[in-house]
Design a protein around this nucleic acid. Sequence first.
DNA 1: CGATGAATTTGCGCTGGATCAAACTTCTCC
DNA 2: GGAGAAGTTTGATCCAGCGCAAATTCATCG
Lengths: 232, 232
Amino acid sequence: MTALIPVDANALADIALFAALPPAVLDEAAAMARARPLPRGLRVFDQGETAGRAHALLSGWVRITQAGSDGEEILVRFIGPGEIFGCVPVLTDGLYPADATAIVDAVELSWDPSDLLALMQRHSQVAITMVAIVGRRLGEAQERLRELATQSADRRVARTLLRLLDQAGRPGGEGIRIAFPLRRKDVADIAGTTLHTASRILAEWERRGLLVSRNRHLIIASPEELRRISEG
Amino acid sequence: MTALIPVDANALADIALFAALPPAVLDEAAAMARARPLPRGLRVFDQGETAGRAHALLSGWVRITQAGSDGEEILVRFIGPGEIFGCVPVLTDGLYPADATAIVDAVELSWDPSDLLALMQRHSQVAITMVAIVGRRLGEAQERLRELATQSADRRVARTLLRLLDQAGRPGGEGIRIAFPLRRKDVADIAGTTLHTASRILAEWERRGLLVSRNRHLIIASPEELRRISEG
DNA sequence: CGATGAATTTGCGCTGGATCAAACTTCTCC
DNA sequence: GGAGAAGTTTGATCCAGCGCAAATTCATCG
């Protein structure tokens, strides 16, 4: 079932969690890692399930969503190359707090929870880097919380696009393109609004020439104007 | 200015970050710690300021708020005895991401950022525990994000009170009392609504006998009914 | 104990954006 | 290449709760 791909320490160096670690530690982490391709559409793990592995992405993109008991969901974040995901439950309650789905063909590394824990115990730098990563995500979540509580839908959508540009902007002819496919529903679920409102806002901006929407991909022609909108 | 209070290792054992650590490590952390009383109303640190210390609370309560450039603010969380605060920026950008204010007379411990970092480097367990603490806060923030995006104001207020009960509920004659003073504005700023809406909701619930509001303190008579409301 | 400021309550009008409905477009896969 | 599924657009309606205003109660401190 699971194709076994040899993991070399070079690949590990691209994972932010292991950045700037001595080669010996990279080798150690590589030895315990399992690589596996994630075909587009694959559900990597489900919310509520026991966290059987801790994950990191070598290439491609993964969408993390959280659903409430009523079925309403939000998009927690997109995971790109070099980022870790599903690692925190290893240290807390052992249950994945959200769903993870590959939105394009991707390749992941993963570790057995106890292996990752042992690695963090032996090498405090790994644990410290993880605090920094999780801490930055916490800061971002709190910022989104504030925006959601206090700002209008169009400001939030603008901020959302700017954040995605930061994370995955690729300069091109017509503007900066967001590297992964993004549906209206995705935009709505990050910005905390409905599909319909998000669609109306984006359609209006496309009319104004602020962005181009093609093929489930967004190209932002004018980040400056977006910034203006996001600031009211 | 700053009263110097001797810090003993026993006090450290009550801080979740240091729980279950060998006595030698507690002594080490105690030796680097500075204790200081925080009179009610004291601003412990300001959003955007350089993180000069990392903090933990021995007693009392601290309110963490975040304001946007437009002045609108949210209440990020309350910090109680044994909890850490203002520790993450030590490992990220070095700037406090929020304001911290003592809402009752309190006592804190604090560390120089580089001392705490060194401690985490020498004892990976400290760093690992911090990942767990920050990870749990991240999970809670994402849950709030989802609720804010998808649920009505009264459901959110109900969830808010239930969370506060978990964190600081003290059983008493008339019901379970939330241990720290809580203004309508505070409830609004956690639940992501306005002072006015929060006031209306709480007044209605008080009429229904669901809770008692006295002296900026809340006593919850019927957590069961709150739970029912929070679930729709 | 009285004064001053802080916190709370309540009324009212208005609107942003959710909800419902339906047509239309674009992908996907056989 | 065509059928069905998935995603998007757009219109129409409606209401939760925000914004504004004003009165009232409560807390604090000289």
